[in-house]
């Protein structure tokens, strides 16, 4: 199938991109890696008037350090993520989740920022960004603003990005010494979307859990934190019993959908099981 006609702009700087978005008319779509947008356009579920292709905006691609933070350019591809030395050292949770995204070819084109801006609740990276309390840097005609992950994901396929704005970079804390991470994903076949997945990062101090961050994929219209489990884990001695008890609360406050892959109650069951596995692995059990 062939998409409906559109005007095409290929800026090479962020400035030019914002201008192209401003000049693009009523219905402008930003094309990052295109691995979700192009299929949607082929099905004519989207027929934008103008497409602004960011592929040649070099300043949007790459990973750098900024003190205790990593700054990931929105157009950094999934394949870039998997080979980046800074992410290998401080961003293993992102790396693990990215490894499970689609397949080799899609990871060559698909981007970190594109996946987050698309905000599919079954996508793997939104829950990771939420668990890490990532900060989203948005550029617009009036300058830049920073939105925390908890406010970025607004609803199903809907983010805090306003018309005319562009996601430029994502800032995540470096997870170094003491942190363990695990992304546990359950899907029916490889390259399929998550039925449910859990992103866990746990900081241990001796035999105890000092801090736990848990993000849930596909347990509602947006990614969610397993807040009750996080709270229950702080200060406990690390053991399979304590982790299992805390993970039993993982589905609290979630509202997963019923669809062809799974019913809501099954998803809530999965959330508990996967949280137990993810936290146990992250805590080194």
């Amino acid at each position: 199938m062939i998409p409906a006609p559109f005007a095409y702009a290929r800026p090479s700087t962020i400035e030019e991109a914002l201008q192209a978005i401003a000049d693009g008319g009523e219905d402008v779509k930003v094309l990052a890696g295109g691995q979700s947008l192009i299929p949607v356009m082929r099905l004519r579920l989207a027929a934008p008037e103008t497409l602004v292709d960011l592929t040649r905006v070099a300043e949007l691609r790459g990973v750098r350090e900024d003190g205790d933070m990593l700054v990931i350019g929105a157009m950094t591809t999934h394949a870039d993520v998997l080979t980046d030395p800074l992410l290998a050292q401080y961003g293993q949770l992102i790396v693990q989740a990215t490894e499970t995204v689609a397949d080799r070819q899609v990871r060559r084109r698909g981007t970190f920022g594109g996946a987050l801006a698309h905000a599919d609740p079954a996508g793997d990276l939104p829950a990771v960004a939420l668990a890490l309390d990532a900060e989203f840097v948005l550029a617009g005609p009036g300058g830049r603003r920073t939105v925390p992950a908890a406010e970025f994901f607004v609803d199903y396929l809907t983010t805090a990005l306003e018309e005319g704005e562009l996601l430029v970079e994502i800032r995540v804390p470096k997870l170094g010494e003491g942190w363990g991470v695990r992304y546990e994903k359950f899907n029916r076949v490889v390259q399929a979307w998550s039925i449910v997945a859990v992103a866990a990062a746990v900081r241990r101090e001796g035999g105890r859990i000092a801090e736990a961050r848990i993000g849930l994929t596909n347990m509602g219209p947006t990614p969610l934190r397993a807040s009750a489990t996080e709270a229950a884990l702080v200060g406990v001695d690390v053991s399979l019993e304590t982790v299992t008890a805390a993970a039993a609360q993982a589905a609290e406050g979630t509202s997963p959908s019923n669809d062809l892959n799974a019913q809501a109650d099954y998803r809530q069951h999965l959330a508990q099981v996967l949280t137990r596995r993810a936290v146990a692995a992250a805590a080194g059990l």
Binding site: R10, G34, Q35, I38, R42, T55, D103, V106, R108
Partner: peptide, 27 residues
């Protein structure tokens, strides 16, 4: 498949495998 699933249309773009049904020719 025409849905970015099957990979039958895979080519190399600047040396990297991509699904050519999910890339525009202008790109």
């Amino acid at each position: 498949c025409d849905t970015s699933n099957c990979g039958a249309c895979t080519v190399h773009l600047d040396g990297q495998a991509v699904k050519s049904c999910t890339v525009f020719a202008v790109q």
